[in-house]
Design a protein around this nucleic acid. Sequence first.
DNA 1: TCACCAATCCGAAACGTTTCGGGAAATCTT
DNA 2: AAGATTTCCCGAAACGTTTCGGATTGGTGA
Lengths: 340, 340
Amino acid sequence: MATLKDLSKHLDLSVTQVSRALNDHADVSEDTKKRVTKAARELGYTANISARKLKSGRSGIVAMVVAAEEEREMPDVLLAGVIGLSAELSKRGMQFVLHVTTDGDDPVATHRKLCGSGLIDGFLIVNPAPNDARIGLLRSLGVPFAVHGRDADQPDYPYFDVDNHALGFKLTEHLLSLGHRRIALIDGPAHAVFAIRRAAGFQAAYAVAGVEPAQGRVLNVEMTAQKGEEAVATLFEVGGDRPTALIAGNTMIATGIYTALAKRGLSIPDDVSVVAHDDGLPRVPIQDFRPSLTATTSPLADAWGPIADALATRLTPPDRECRQVIVTPELSVRASSATC
Amino acid sequence: MATLKDLSKHLDLSVTQVSRALNDHADVSEDTKKRVTKAARELGYTANISARKLKSGRSGIVAMVVAAEEEREMPDVLLAGVIGLSAELSKRGMQFVLHVTTDGDDPVATHRKLCGSGLIDGFLIVNPAPNDARIGLLRSLGVPFAVHGRDADQPDYPYFDVDNHALGFKLTEHLLSLGHRRIALIDGPAHAVFAIRRAAGFQAAYAVAGVEPAQGRVLNVEMTAQKGEEAVATLFEVGGDRPTALIAGNTMIATGIYTALAKRGLSIPDDVSVVAHDDGLPRVPIQDFRPSLTATTSPLADAWGPIADALATRLTPPDRECRQVIVTPELSVRASSATC
DNA sequence: TCACCAATCCGAAACGTTTCGGGAAATCTT
DNA sequence: AAGATTTCCCGAAACGTTTCGGATTGGTGA
């Protein structure tokens, strides 16, 4: 592989000047910049990232640590994240290290080790828990990171999040306005912040409508069709107090709900109204639902670009900008929700 | 972060000796080795990988490049691969870099660039094409790599592969022995070596049985339930020459076949026999099929360990062993296949 | 007593890059 | 025409590790 020294010999310039030319510094003439970049292309020069990192501290590599069990919990979402983030980072000339921890070993320890290994510029975190330990560690170590979601209301780090409170509120408010009172929210695991916020929005909608909130129920499950089906089973086996409307945390759960209700001979929306949040997962497109599904929409795919940007700007001195984005999804009313 | 120099000061030893102690060299006393490792643990020392790579050429990082469109084609398989490989490499103290190329840019160029970036020890390649260009590049560059599958009969590189010819042969032979003559193989994309080999095994079974091979059909599709369903539609719409038996390339395709036949009111195995190859994908467990599915089985999960080993041994001088493994799956006859 | 050997240790150089502190020549000010 | 400024350039040091070639012991056999 060609090195700076090779280039400098070939061009009869100092190594210094070649380096500065390639990094587009001010005090090198336009002419030499052209010559240098041309020669670099011809000789197939690529900067040695190890050497760069060693000297300057920048490698352009960011990492994400995911637990294998977490992968199993929400495979589609994580897959979308891995692909989306990796692609967006590649576009920005950065590289993406995915580190899967096997069952049993601690993600926080893994972060600590990776920090010490001296080749990673920053981290990406998805699906934070309340008061997330990984975030705590990275903050205390002063290592840059960006988060999909957030573990507090006013975080001091860059993130991209959906307004999950508003999302829960809108879906619930819609159903309440149609006259529903016994509504069940079937959403992701209770240890996920997004589910907690959505549940809060759900409660808030009851409060604003002046309806006794005890009539609402929240079920926390893994976000798969299978679990959605089981949740419906739980809700409808238990005698008289059946819900008249269901809210699904994503379209996979909604799929499960649709099949479970069909199995029971209950029709949508005549017997039960169903609404959902749509992440835009390619595997379960919302157009495929019959009857068409009333839903809030905010594609996961929209998140990866901003998150990559947030981390990239965070990494570039001297400003170390802290970019924070919250998007509020719109509600689209379709055929799956009707008056009670 | 603590460095070797910090340790050497703290222990009143030379940097050299600390390094040699940590790397378990022969000419350092057992006593100092103990002292050094203890101090390293206490001070939280982690070797700086950039520096190590720069000097010694070893970083412990291996990369895999996947194209985004390929991800879309076989999401479950690729996800399983990413998780499995990452986990297995982590176990061996190595790290796994996943690089997703966005639509349009060339995977081969990406490999070349990564080779030049000076931080990757070797590559993993999955799902090779016949005469794979990535393999050609890495070979010519002398960069170590290991392959899941193989692009030739007797490759000169480390790999782990299923005997896809035998697999296609066994499934077809089974159906032929039950009296079936019009058999359709619905398998992965025509540009994948595994599908080509299976098709060859399919043809070979016809030849050995002395049956006119023109009665068999091979369909190449993306390996999803959706595409499996569509394939059945193609096969059964076209008038009189319907197949009496179907072979599915994996359990996702088999799922599609089951639903498509059910929709048409065709029963398994009375009207149509169905057999499949089972990759052990967690999403579509073979136990869930009704009637139970006759299949060859070889879990993808069994591949990642051997592949990680193959690459790891390949990377360790001086021997640079070339480990090559082929497994032959067994056929389990169940309820989905019967006499014609 | 002396050379010799094994067992431990160490200094210094090197990997390829960035960056600090200057320096020479050309151009501009007065 | 002398100083000030701009423009372009360079040498050398440093990042943290590994490794080469030797150096220092204490002990052994002649």
